[in-house]
Amino acid sequence: MTSLTVLAAGPATSIQDAGRFGWQRYGVGPAGAMDRLSLALANAIAGNPPGTGAIEFALAGGRLRVEGGPARVSLAGADCLVKIDGATVAPLSSVTVHDGQTIEVGAARSGMFAYLAVAGGFALKPALGSLSLHHRTGVGGLDGRALRAGDRLLLKLQEPAGQDLALPSSPPAGSGPMRVVLGPQDDYFTPDAIRTLAENPYTVSDQADRMGLRLRGPKLDHGAKGYNIVSDGIPTGAIQVPGNGLPLILLADRQTTGGYPKIATVISWDLPRLVQCRPGTGLRFAIVDRGEAVRIAKAEDAAFRKLIATIRPAGLAGFDSSELLALNLIDGVVDARH
C-alpha cells in the first residue's frame, strides 16, 4: 500500500479535515482545519472534495517520504516552500511524488497553518465521524495524537488517477478589519467596551494556539451584571472576555461550553484570515449585523467557488477570457468589503 512516512514534523502537526460535528452536546469540540479555506484549496488542487483530511502544519514544516507507490500531493495556506528531493515545486500546484522520494515542507515564511493534501486522502479510521485531531482531548488524528517522526500514514489510493492540477493565480489575500457580530452576551458589557472593541487596535499575543487567540490591547469592561454567566454554548470565533477584561477568541479546539460572557463573534468568512495571524500581528474589529454577515458569507463563497473553478491541469499555458473575467470579479468582491 502507498504510504507517507513522517521523517520530521513540528510539535503541532496533525491530521485535520472539515471538523467533527454532532458531538458538542457531549463536550466534544469540532476541531478541524483552523483555516478551512486553505484546506479546501489544497484538496481542490489535489482533486479531492473540500473537507478531505489533510496534514495541518503549524508554523514549523516537516519532511515525509512516499513509499510503496506514487502519491499526488498539494499544499495551500501559510506560505511554505515545498521541495521534492530538493527540487522546488511551483506553489498551488499538485505534484506526483514517486516511491522513495522525499517531500519537504519548509517552515512558514508568513502565516501560521498550511495543509498538505494527498489525492484520495488518508486511509485512517474516523473517530466520531471525523479524522480531525482535537489536541487536548486526544480524539481523532493518528492514535489520538499529533504526528511525529516514524509515523506511517497509509493512503486510500495505491496510485492517483488523472493528472496534476494547478490554480493559475494566487487566492486574493484578504485585508481590513475582522468583522464581528455582537453577541451572544454583549449586554454584559458597558457601551464603552463595545466602542473600545470597534475602535481600538489589538495585538495577537504569544498565547495563540488551536484552542484560541488571546489578544493584547485595551480592556473590555463588564457592566453591572458582572463576568459570570451560567455556562452556555460557545460558537467558533466567539470573543470571550474573562474577569481580567482581555479578549480571547475561541477557535477549533475550544471547550464546548463556558461561563464567561462573549461580547461578539468573528464572522465565519474572516476566521481563516484571523487564524493565519501570527503572535504580534495587529488586528482591528468592525461590527456588522447578522444579515450583513450572511451576505458576506454568500458573496465570498461564490467568489471562492469561481476561484476553485479556475483550477486546471498543471503546466497548461494561458487562460481564456472568461477565466480572466471571473478572476476580476473575485477581486471586485474582495475590494468591495473594505
Binding site: 458538542q24 452536546r25 455556562s231 460558537p235 461550553t257
Partner: peptide
Amino acid sequence: FIEAVPTYRSLMVQFDPL
C-alpha cells in the same frame, strides 16, 4: 442545520449560513 448544543438554560443552534 448542523447541530444543537443544549446547556442549562439555552440551546445553541449551529447552522450553515449559506
